[in-house]
Amino acid sequence: MSLEYMVKNKVDKIIINEGNKRKLVTLKGLIFGREETFHEINEGGTWKKEEIYNLISKYHFLFFTSSNLLIDAKDFIKSEKAKEIEVGEVMNVEPIISPPEESVYNVLQKMRERDEEYAIIVCNSLPCGILDLFGVGKAILEGRLKESVMNFAEKDFFKVTPESSLETARKLMISSSQFFLPVVDFRTLLGSVSWKEVFDNLNKEAYVS
């Protein structure tokens, strides 16, 4: 599976067959230069949501062999509500940030070092773009890693405040397919909230019997 295919089709993970063996290919793995592993599930019985949650927490990627379905935390949070808490209680106060003139190459190094999928571009103290792995992948494919991050950043994105509910943040992520939101007030960037914080703070009481 090529980087070009994944970037062009907005695919961040896929299972491929190599002979008699299945292999997980992720956009993150291709860009960061590492292999990802997954856990196979034979759907012989009934799986509770709590069990699936625990397996994703442990293995990150689950592949259901009968239905040929690959899921991760981003997929799981699409159907599960977040706790009734505010974004400010769980937000990341130290996201990767970059000035607009920074090169994609330099920001990619920070993303790789911190194992992060996103960086926030800041103009005049407020977010003006988000560089994700699809943007990085496009820069790699076009041989333009030395260019400004703004050339490959997503400029149309939602923002939340610390007072926003985490459930509101989850819904915005799902509706936009952007699993990373800057957290702001009217003057400055305060942090970020991503699928990680949502997944770690799902309202599990709603589906645990």
Rank of each mutant, 00 (worst) to 15 (best):
E36Y: 09
T37F: 10
H39W: 10
E40H: 02
E40N: 05
I41F: 03
N42G: 06
N42V: 12
G44F: 10
G45Y: 08
T46D: 14
T46L: 15
T46M: 14
W47K: 11
K49P: 08
K49D: 15
K49N: 13
E50R: 12
I52C: 02
I52S: 01
Y53I: 08
Y53V: 02
N54W: 06
N54D: 14
S57H: 10
K58N: 07
Y59N: 07
L62T: 02
F64S: 08
T65E: 15
T65K: 15
S67E: 13
S67P: 00
N68Q: 13
L69Q: 13
L70Y: 05
I71A: 05
I71E: 04
D72N: 15
K74Q: 11
S79I: 13
A82M: 07
K83D: 08
I85F: 07
I85N: 07
G88L: 06
E89N: 12
E89T: 11
E89L: 07
V93P: 04
V93I: 14
P95M: 09
S98R: 05
P100C: 09
E101Q: 13
E102Y: 07
Y105L: 13
N106V: 10
N106D: 15
N106G: 07
V107N: 00
L108D: 01
K110S: 14
D115Q: 10
E117R: 15
A119M: 05
I121K: 00
P127G: 03
C128K: 03
G129C: 04
I130P: 00
L131Q: 02
F134K: 04
F134I: 09
K138D: 09
K138S: 10
A139S: 11
I140V: 15
I140K: 08
L141D: 05
G143C: 08
G143M: 08
R144A: 11
E147Y: 10
E154G: 09
K155Q: 12
K155M: 13
K159L: 12
V160P: 04
